[in-house]
Amino acid sequence: MTVTKTNESNKLTVAIEGRIDTTTAPQLEAEIGELEGVNELVLDFAGVEYISSAGLRVVLKTQKIMNVNGEMKLINVNGDVMDVFDITGFVDILTIE
């Protein structure tokens, strides 16, 4: 998994490529970091081909932080990953564009 971060004032864009699974989820969590001072977070899923429960947990934890800090959205989510958000019911609380 490769993570590319772009900072723009208080906006952070995290572009992810590859699989977010048990092995790579901790790396993603570390890359996203504490989000101090970030009030707009964009997770670009264009390159994400798979997400496991471990990856979901990282996304949910990040969403909880951003509920306090500001806004978070996921962009370019492919169909298979969207299905995972859908069947688990997490689509209800995530902003997916």
């Binding site: 429960s53 979901l56 069947i87 688990t88 019911g89 997490f90 609380i93």
Partner: peptide, 10 residues
């Protein structure tokens, strides 16, 4: 799937 997490809205 091998999912082991669900939302309470499922």
């Amino acid at each position: 799937t091998d999912l082991d997490i669900l939302s309470s809205n499922a």
